Amino acid sequence: MPTPVPALVVVLAGPSGVGKSRLAARTGLPVLRLDDYYRSGDDPALPRIATGANAGLVDWDDPRSWLRDGAVSAICELAVTGRTVAPVYDIARNGPVGTHVVDLDGSGLFIAEGIFAQEVVAGCRAHGVLAAALCLRQHPLVTFWRRLTRDLREHRKPPLVLVRRGWALMRDQRRVIAAAAAAGCEVVSAPEAEERIRGLNRR
């Protein structure tokens, strides 16, 4: 039988702006921010948008703009050792600006959340560190407004780019959720997810 690991991860997926970070913070559990594993803006491997108003710009909503293997390695290191050094990514600068330590401090459960979180589900399951994989859902217009106000507040990209991107993401939200479900995530509302996580934490 496989050797049990000291800690397990709850993978929290969902469209940008759906409230993953907010929910993760409410649980009080240690959190690994998977969005910190984006590629640097000068990485030649970055995918580009082929058509439409944003043609030629980096497609930050394509999983190829993100370092899946690095994220899975960090999750496994946290589960086994209780500690990892993670990058700090500045979206406005399109690159990492340093590192920070994520320490479980003895917790047997932690959360890994991000826009591409569903991409780590198979790897976490294969390594025996997965407690649950959840994908948040809410009304697309609510997601659009929350995402836009957050991105404008944080000056993540020029306003026109944010509006165009937000509109495209709103139209694509159903597909994103379906893809997360196909990757092994259970689709739930934020209250349902919080209840599931708190139940896992009591075990």
Rank of each mutant, 00 (worst) to 15 (best):
A71F: 07
V31D: 01
A168K: 08
A86I: 09
R68M: 03
A180C: 10
V187C: 02
D59G: 11
R171Q: 15
E195W: 13
E186N: 09
P87H: 11
Q118D: 15
P96C: 13
D59T: 13
W167Y: 12
R33K: 10
R125K: 07
V9C: 13
L32S: 08
R22S: 15
V85F: 03
V121K: 04
A7G: 07
D103F: 06
A25M: 09
G41F: 08
D172W: 14
P87K: 13
A168I: 02
A71L: 05
Q173L: 01
V101D: 14
F144C: 02
A112Y: 04
D59P: 07
L46H: 06
R156K: 15
D103H: 07
L169R: 09
C185T: 00
A71P: 09
C135T: 00
L29D: 03
V10N: 00
W66N: 05
L141K: 04
D105S: 12
D42W: 10
R64H: 06
V10P: 00
S189Y: 03
Q138R: 14
G82A: 08
A181V: 14
R175T: 13
G114K: 00
L141D: 15
L162R: 10
P44W: 11
L141F: 06
A178V: 04
V18R: 01
R164C: 02
R137H: 06
G19M: 06
M1V: 15
K20E: 00
E113Q: 01
R64D: 06
A24M: 07
Q138H: 06
D61M: 08
L78C: 08
R146C: 10
I177L: 09
P191V: 05
R39M: 02
H127Q: 13
A13H: 04
L12E: 02
G17I: 09
V97P: 02
A168Q: 10
D43L: 07
V161L: 14
L32C: 02
Y89K: 12
A133Q: 02
L109Y: 07
I177D: 00
S21W: 02
A117I: 01
V18N: 04
L109Q: 04
L67T: 04
P158G: 10
T51I: 10
Y38A: 02
Q138M: 12
R171I: 01
L12F: 03
A24N: 03
D42M: 06
V31S: 05
V142Y: 02
C124E: 01
R203P: 00
A13R: 02
C185F: 00
G108Y: 05
T99V: 12
D36A: 06
I49H: 07
K20C: 02
E113P: 00
R64C: 01
S21D: 03
R196A: 08
P63L: 13
R26C: 01
R137E: 12
D35H: 03
T3H: 13
A92K: 14
V163P: 04
H127S: 14
P191H: 12
I75G: 09
C185E: 01
G123L: 01
R171D: 08
H139Y: 03
R146D: 14
D42E: 11
A193W: 05
P140C: 11
V58F: 03
T143N: 11
V121T: 03
G166M: 08
H100N: 08
E113M: 01
E195A: 15
